[in-house]
């Protein structure tokens, strides 16, 4: 993510934190991520693109060892630092990845960061940055835009946002710019993201040194069957806007 791309988040800290309570995240994304991560007891974890530090705080509360949150957006880091201070959570939030962090982490989590790579070289660099932080055998979990998200502009509106491809005729073009508009409580602003195909994502991750890539669909893990999930979640579960990619550093 470059500086201009990160700058767009500066005034969205509170709303991003609030989003953790929106149903698609609360009942689908977050439980899916935790299920995939599994036991974190004692693990050293870096939350890459930590935003307000929501995942970092939860991981620390669930028993992780060293937790570091990394983000380029000062507005997000202010929120993350103030909140962790008040909750007495020993988490370091940084805007720079120093050499002391290289190869230190059992797990790197990158939620909604790859969509903010604006070019293919930037996507490659971002993947390399994440993998470099992992110890050999360490895991990466990352959530890009789903390669087959629903490109209908209003599809996700009931979930509080719109994903609008800049070229609606060609929404799955690699590097296509996508507008993410927040609209849960009226028009609340928005940011630009970039769509990357499954092939591009896999290539970038593998070139960065990741092995054993697995794709995991998001699910409402509290419900044994998706049909038993609340009806209002069904459309999202059918076409989630994101997906989990997991891999191991070789």
């Amino acid at each position: 993510m470059n500086t201009a791309s990160s700058d767009q988040f500066n005034e969205y800290a509170s709303i991003y934190e609030d989003m953790s309570q929106w149903p698609f995240r609360k009942y689908i994304e977050i439980p899916s991520v935790f299920q995939e991560i599994g036991d974190v007891d004692g693990l050293s974890i870096l939350d890459f693109g930590c935003g307000t530090g929501m995942y970092a705080r939860w991981l620390k509360q669930r028993g992780a060892g060293q937790v570091v949150g990394y983000d380029l957006t000062e507005g997000m880091l202010n929120y993350a630092r103030r909140r962790a201070e008040k909750e007495d959570l020993d988490i370091s939030f940084v805007s720079h990845l120093g050499p002391e962090l290289i190869g230190q982490f059992d797990l790197v989590l990158g939620v909604y960061v790859l969509p903010y790579a604006t070019t293919r070289p930037e996507l490659q660099a971002m993947c390399a940055d994440m993998v470099r932080l992992m110890r050999p055998g360490g895991r990466l979990l990352t959530l890009p835009i789903h390669p087959v998200y629903d490109p209908h502009p209003n599809y996700y509106e009931p979930y509080g946002f719109r994903l609008i491809a800049e070229d609606p005729e060609n929404p799955y073009a690699d590097g296509e710019r996508v507008k993410l508009e927040l609209c849960k409580n009226g028009e609340q602003g928005g940011v630009f993201a970039w769509y990357w195909s499954a092939t591009s994502l896999e290539r970038a991750l593998e070139q960065a040194g990741l092995r054993s890539l697995k794709w995991r669909e998001l699910s409402a893990s509290a419900y044994p069957d998706a049909n038993q999930a609340p009806k209002e979640l069904h459309a999202y579960l059918q076409r989630p806007h994101s997906i989990i990619i997991e891999g191991v550093r070789g």
Binding site: Q8, E17, G189
Partner: peptide, 30 residues
């Protein structure tokens, strides 16, 4: 880089607020 929504949607508005205690602590501290 922020999405160019309508100008009135992006504009800032200001005023004398409700009491401090009615503002969200975390939103302030951000």
């Amino acid at each position: 880089m922020v999405v160019p929504l309508r100008d009135d949607a992006r504009a800032f508005c200001s005023g004398v607020s409700e009491k401090l205690c009615e503002l969200d602590e975390h939103e302030w501290d951000a």
